[in-house]
Amino acid sequence: MTNPKNSIADKKTIPSIYPTKTKLQVTVIFFVILALYLFSMKKTTEDMVNGLDGALGNMFRVLAKFFPPNFEILKAIWNPMLETIQMAIIATTIAAIITIPLAILSARNVTTFKPLYYITRIFLNLLRTIPDVVLAVVFVGLFGIGIFPGILALIIFSLGILAKLISETIESVDMNPLEAMRASGANTLQMIWYALVPQIAPQFTSLVLYVFEINIRASVILGLVGAGGIGLTLNQQINFYNYPNAMTIIIVIFITVIIIEYISTKLREALL
């Protein structure tokens, strides 16, 4: 490596904005990513020799079967839809409560006892690696078809996301007030309650609402594998080739999700 200071002074030229090393790194990264794209393109084209030929025609044929939607079943799907929302509410609430200790234990700035921090981190990482559908399949196997296995799957699924996001929020707080509390003789619990909680409360609420949105959508998917709610009903209708009914269910889900997301977004805007 040449000494950049000297080379600038010798040539008396304008220095470039980034050092040579950074430029080199960025170039290498660019070509690696390009190579990855080319590689995956080659793989997919091999699999899709027929291209989109059949798909377009099929699409209209399949779509036509869904119309017109059968709105007569609206009354019957009201209950499973509510069930789905209830699942999401219960699961999010329980997850939000269990998250608090886990998030604190997995925040490096608060949990200074390293082994405890690492154990919690590893545990949370393991939770996150399990896909929600797999959780649902396992719990349906254990407890049978219904909303209970669905709720359990959602709790574990949201715990993984929430604890991670909230522990990162905790790690970014201003530690000065905590120091002041410690200096005045407060114990750890008082420090957390007085100096930490006010700092993370808005983000905490916002993240819980966000996970609630995710849970509404996830519980529909979980229903497909037997974990109760509207997903279960949707799956039954599709299995019976009752597409007009399925279409009504899809529309109801669509509207519900939009309404809940709208409310949640407004609430979160007000909070932050």
């Binding site: 002041a180 200096a183 005045s184 003789g185 407060a186 008082q190 007085y194 700092q199 409360a201």
Partner: peptide, 29 residues
């Protein structure tokens, strides 16, 4: 620590809490 009060360069108040609550935090110990 309850008998040694401390004042900091950056005040170290809880910014989102109100003044009275910040002052009451002096009683935590």
């Amino acid at each position: 620590r309850t008998k040694t009060g401390m004042i900091f360069q950056n005040y170290n108040l809880v910014k989102r809490s109100n003044v009275l609550k910040n002052v009451l935090a002096g009683r935590l110990g």
